[in-house]
Amino acid sequence: MNNLLAAERLKLRHNRLIISCSSLAIILPVMVIATDIFQGALPKYSIMGWVFRLASLCQYFAYPVLSGFVLTFLIQREYTDHTIINMLTAPVTRTRLLIGKLIIWATWHITMTLCYLAIVCLGAGILYGSATLYGSFYEIASFIIKFGLLHLVTLTPIAWVAVLQRKNFYPSLLCTIIFTGIGFAGLYFPKFLGSLVPWSSVPLITVPGMQVVPVLATTSICICAFFGLFMAVYSFKHQDQ
């Protein structure tokens, strides 16, 4: 596994898409925060309110889409470059190959979430002062990390689609956008339906004060994560090249 991850890391050298996705994920919150600092949007929101407002732009929309992009790209590229054949004839099981990819993707996703957390903390510190930030740091961090992780696990079905689509890329991108759309629309879903659909459960369960059935939401998120993972591995294992 070590070698596999090292190889995956080597593949990412001089990789423009990963670099642009990463920079986009960093520039976006920085821009928003910079505008806030210049306009002085302070009085309207409390610190948590400000974090939620920022999340609705970055974590609801941008991050899942970028993450979906990266995952699609990691998998689909092996098919378009025909490298999949060289990979599969290596003495590594197919499951490990796919898991290796997913680990790289998860690492990226988590790193980006942590970067985002750092940026938000920095912004909050400038806007609200360090004292306020200290007071609500735990709340901010747990919110952002929880949101990021839940997004990560509900995106595993994208891996499945990416395996099935081989050289195409639009099915998985479409799926990413649909999942993101559902996540956003879920805020207006009735309580039960919102908790049933995994992608809408993520914001419902993370943002405090939402109408949600916690047990149902957690279950649906778990099922979604495992289903996506299992199907991706299963399809990859039984795929004809």
Partner: peptide, 23 residues
């Protein structure tokens, strides 16, 4: 079929990747 390698990497880097995976 066609030899499959990562287009943005050099030949050496490509082989290093496969050497890493295969030993």
């Amino acid at each position: 079929e066609t030899p499959g390698f990562y287009p943005h990497l050099t030949g050496t880097e490509n082989l290093q990747i496969f050497a890493r995976i295969r030993g």
